[in-house]
Design a binder for these strands. Structure first.
Length: 455
RNA sequence: GUGAUUGUAGUUCAGUUGGUUAGAACGCCUGAUUGUGGUUCAGGAGGUCGCCGGUUCAAAUCCGGUCUUCCACCCCA
C-alpha cells in the first residue's frame, strides 16, 4: 500500500471510460469550432519564462510551473541573493522555461512570431493542456485542458457576437443550461473614473467581483481597507446595486457613467453586441453583470464568463477582448478576442448532471471466442473479413474457458460474440450471440456482417 | 500563500476508554456448468492499518514530523 506508485498532486489518469466521455466533449467542441471557420494550431507545453511572466498579474506569476535548467545551474547563482533568501531573483537564474499557464498568451506569441505567414483576421482554435501550481480542490486541477478560440486582427464586434453564438451552440449540444455573463473593461474603468479613483481600477474591480460571495458590506470594508474614500464608496453604491433587466441596467449605467469617455464607449459596445444577439436564436440566458471583473489583466474590452445553471463549480468558460497582448511581444495595434472552454469542468458538470450519452465508450462490436489453435487460425480469417467491412471486432487471444471469454465480452460491453468451433468451421454457419438478449443465430459470414451493420 | 479535513483489503467503509487472531459489503479467483456472460449456490485468496520517529509491558487507536486526500479562501477553467 505504502509503496504504491502515484502521480503528482492535482493531476489525473484517465481510464478508457473517462476517455470516451472526454472525447465526446472534445469532439463536440471541435466540430463546432470548425463549423465557424476556426483552424487548429498547437504550441509547445513549455514556453520561455520571459514569454509567460507578467502577463497574468502577480497571482499568475506565482502559479507558473517553472522548469529547472539542465546542466550545472547552481554555478550561476549569486551568493548574495541566496543568502538573502531572494528566491525570485534566484529562480530566474536557474529556470528559463515554464509550463504554459493558458493558451492565449502562447497564441499571442505565436501570432507575433509567425506574423508573415498568417492571413489576418486569424481565427484559430487550440485544444491542449495547461498547468497551474494551484492548490487542487473541487473543479480545480493542476493540469487541465482548455479549448480556446480566438480571432486576432479584427476590431469588429461581430467577433464577440460570434463567440457568444459558439458558446451557446456548444453548451446546447452538450445539454448544459448556462448563463452567459457579460461586462466590459471600459465600463469598469468608467466606473473608476466617475468616482474619481481612476488609478484604483484593479482594487475596485477585484473587490466588487466578490459581491455575490461576501455581500455588499464586506465589499465596502475591503474597499476602505484598500484606501478608498467614503465619498467614492458612496458614489459606487448605485452602480453596484444595479439590478433588473439588461436594458434597464444599460439605461442606469448610461446615467451614472455615460459622461466618462471609457464608460460611454463600453456601454456602446455592450449595446451593439446585445443588438446583434437579438438577431440570433440564442438559447442561453444573457446577463449584464457590472461586477464581473476577471483577474487576467490583459483584457481591455468585452469580458465574457459562463456559468452552469444547475451545478456550482465556478466558471466553465471565459474570455474577452485584449487590445494589446501582441504589443508586449512587439506587434502593435493588433486586437484579439477569444474565449476558453474548461473541458475538465465541463466533464464534472456533465458527470454531476448524469448527462453523458450512453455510447461514449469505444469498444468492439463483436468478439470471436477462441476455442484453440486450429479454430483461432480459422477465426483470424473470419476476423479479417469482418474488419474489411468496417466493423470493430477482436479475437480473444487465449483459448481460455468459454465462461471466462464470455465474461470478458460482457465486462467490455461488447454487444455480439461469435462462436467459431469445430462444427461451425465445417458448415460455415457461425453462431452469433446477442449479449443483450441472449439470443443465438446460425449465420453465414455475409449475414453476420449485414446483421451487425444494420443493428 | 492562509485555514480546515482525510488516509485501514482491488473499491467503499466499520473498528469501543490503547489489550491478545483487524472486520463487512462489493469486487476478484475456483467449483456447481471440460461450448455460453450478466442471476443463484458453495468455497478461497487478499492488509507492514500512508510513511518516519516517540510514549507504553502493549499502538490501527495517544504524541510529533512528513507525505497524501478533500474542501473553503485567494485566484481561476
Amino acid at each position: 500500500m505504502a509503496q504504491k506508485p502515484s502521480i503528482p498532486k492535482g493531476t489525473r489518469d484517465f481510464s478508457p471510460m473517462e476517455m470516451g466521455r472526454r472525447n465526446y466533449i472534445f469532439d463536440t467542441i471541435k466540430s463546432i469550432f470548425q463549423k465557424y471557420g476556426y483552424q487548429p494550431i498547437e504550441t509547445p507545453a513549455m514556453e520561455n519564462l520571459s514569454t509567460l511572466m507578467g502577463k497574468y498579474g502577480e497571482e499568475g506569476d506565482r502559479l507558473l510551473f517553472k522548469i529547472l535548467n539542465s546542466g550545472d545551474y547552481l554555478k550561476k547563482l549569486d551568493e548574495n541573493d541566496l543568502s538573502e533568501g531572494n528566491s525570485q531573483k534566484s529562480a530566474i537564474k536557474i529556470s528559463e522555461k515554464g509550463l504554459r499557464y493558458d493558451l492565449t498568451v502562447p497564441f499571442a506569441r505565436y501570432v507575433v512570431q509567425h506574423r508573415n505567414d498568417i492571413v489576418f483576421p486569424f481565427k484559430r482554435y487550440q485544444i491542449q493542456p495547461v498547468w497551474r501550481a494551484d492548490r487542487p480542490q473541487k473543479g480545480r486541477y493542476r493540469e487541465f485542458f482548455q479549448c480556446d478560440i480566438d480571432v486576432i486582427g479584427s476590431n469588429s464586434l461581430l467577433n464577440e457576437t460570434e463567440l457568444i453564438r459558439v458558446i451557446d451552440e456548444i453548451f446546447k449540444n452538450l445539454g448544459i443550461d448556462i448563463t452567459i455573463k457579460l461586462n466590459n473593461r471600459k465600463i469598469l474603468s468608467g466606473i473608476a473614473t466617475i468616482i474619481d479613483e481612476p488609478e484604483r481600477l484593479t482594487d475596485i474591480t477585484t473587490a466588487i467581483d466578490k459581491l455575490d460571495k461576501i455581500g455588499i458590506e464586506k465589499v465596502y470594508d475591503e474597499l476602505r481597507a484598500k484606501g478608498l474614500s467614503e465619498d467614492a464608496i458612496n458614489n459606487l453604491e448605485p452602480i453596484i446595486n444595479l439590478g433588473g433587466e439588461n436594458s434597464k441596467k444599460l439605461l442606469c449605467l448610461k446615467e451614472l457613467i455615460g459622461l466618462s469617455e471609457d464608460g460611454s464607449k463600453g456601454i456602446l459596445e455592450m449595446e451593439t453586441m446585445l443588438s446583434h444577439l437579438e438577431l440570433l436564436d440564442i438559447k442561453a440566458k444573457i446577463e449584464i453583470d457590472q461586477s464581473l471583473a476577471r483577474g487576467l489583466n490583459y483584457y481591455t474590452g468585452a469580458i465574457i464568463e459562463v456559468k452552469a445553471n444547475d451545478v456550482n463549480i465556478g466558471s466553465i468558460c471565459g474570455g474577452g477582448r485584449y487590445d494589446n497582448l501582441t504589443g508586449i511581444f512587439g506587434l502593435q495595434d493588433v486586437s484579439g478576442v477569444g474565449v476558453s472552454f474548461g473541458a475538465d469542468r465541463i466533464y464534472d458538470v456533465l458527470n454531476e448532471l448524469n448527462a453523458f450519452p450512453e455510447q461514449s465508450q469505444t469498444t468492439s462490436e463483436l468478439m470471436i471466442i477462441n476455442f484453440g489453435e486450429k479454430e483461432s487460425l480459422h477465426s483470424l480469417q473470419v476476423l479479417e473479413e469482418i474488419h474489411k467491412s468496417g466493423i470493430k471486432a477482436e479475437l480473444y487471444p487465449e483459448s481460455a474457458k468459454v465462461q471466462k471469454q464470455m465474461k470478458y465480452a460482457n465486462q467490455k460491453s461488447i454487444p455480439f460474440v461469435l462462436l467459431v468451433g469445430e462444427e461451425e468451421m465445417k458448415t460455415g454457419n457461425y453462431t452469433l450471440k446477442d449479449m443483450k438478449t441472449g439470443d443465438q443465430y446460425k449465420f453465414k459470414l455475409s449475414q453476420i456482417i449485414n446483421f451487425i451493420k444494420e443493428y
